[in-house]
């Protein structure tokens, strides 16, 4: 049972790395708290649902559509919103409120457009029958999702560490003002990061129907809290940290489900608080951010 819980936690955690990744990127680059993160994920989930239902599009293929559309929407949205927010006295806090408003709007529109019932895509779409991993059997949907999540993390890693754009993005993460002073087009870099961040949330949404049972317009709230836990446990701005955070979350969740099931939702929160207190910068953080 323990071995199964750990393996399942690993796969589930990989998925939650993907869930946290977009949020982490946006926060890391812009110091903007995207409280609508879970709702963007929900939109990705519905996009995948409708693409599958109307055109029979395979979820793995709809990733590309979701990526393109979400980047295309996120980019201009950045210019519309973020520079204004950043001019305020306390952009971090103000962004919380702004995105709370946005989250309400998204949920309202989604409820009007899709209705409020549960939707999902059949699990067999991602492969039939369970897979055997190390003698344990897992649903095919889990294995595929875990694989795609790992690829997405690798993609973000390559973007941040192996491209010129990623290099300047990291410069903006470390110090926005200094980056500005060295002549980096901070807004352009941030806008791209914002678009990619939203798109990653959308892609995480594509797999939500498989990993989270079903999707509804109201699903975002729970996702938000978990995502925050994941990215803080890892460390902000570091995609590898998010992976670590996701896996720590996944394994602890599965462990709790096995041994103290009714307390299962408590441990991630305790984990988050403990890590913050013991190591506020997260598991992989370098800079200590305590006051």
């Amino acid at each position: 049972m323990l071995a199964y819980a750990i393996l399942a936690g690993l796969i589930f955690g990989l998925y939650f790395s993907l869930v946290g990744l977009g949020l982490n990127l946006v926060f890391g680059v812009m110091r903007i708290v995207n409280l609508a993160h879970g709702d963007v994920l929900m939109l990705g989930a519905f996009a995948a649902f409708w693409l599958f239902k109307l055109f029979g599009l395979h979820p793995v293929l709809s990733i590309f559509a979701v990526f393109a559309v979400f980047v295309a929407v996120g980019w201009p949205l950045y210019y519309l919103v973020v520079p204004r927010l950043l001019r305020a006295k306390d952009p971090e806090m103000l962004s919380i409120i702004f995105f709370f408003g946005l989250s309400q709007v998204i949920v309202a529109l989604a409820s009007i457009a899709f209705g409020s019932s549960e939707r999902s895509i059949p699990g067999r779409v991602l492969g039939s029958g369970p897979y055997q991993i190390l003698g344990q059997s897992f649903p095919a949907a889990w294995v595929v999702t875990g694989g795609v999540s790992a690829l997405a993390v690798a993609f973000v890693y390559l973007y941040l560490y192996r491209t010129r754009l990623g290099y300047v993005t990291r410069a903006v993460m470390v110090h926005r003002e200094e980056a500005l002073a060295t002549g980096i087009d901070v807004h352009r870099v941030s806008a791209i990061a914002f678009g990619i961040g939203l798109a990653l949330s959308g892609i995480a949404g594509v797999f939500a129907p498989f990993m989270l049972g079903s999707v509804t317009p109201a699903m975002g709230v729970d996702i938000n809290i978990t995502s925050f836990a994941v990215i803080v446990v890892g460390s902000l701005g570091n995609p590898l940290g998010t992976v670590l955070g996701g896996i720590a979350y996944g394994i602890s969740l599965m462990f709790m489900q096995t041994y103290f099931s009714s307390w299962a939702n408590l441990l991630p929160y305790l984990l988050l608080i403990t890590i913050l207190l013991v190591r506020p910068s997260g598991l992989l953080g370098r800079k200590v951010r305590s006051a």
Binding site: M1, F138, M211, S214, T216, Q257, N265
Partner: peptide, 30 residues
Amino acid sequence: VPTNTSSYTVTINNIQATNPDAVLELGYVN
């Protein structure tokens, strides 16, 4: 399990390990 539980893969594995003749899962639609 908490009401907002959305993943039962591990729980199912644990139930299976007890070798039950009958299983009752009481929850909301989600």
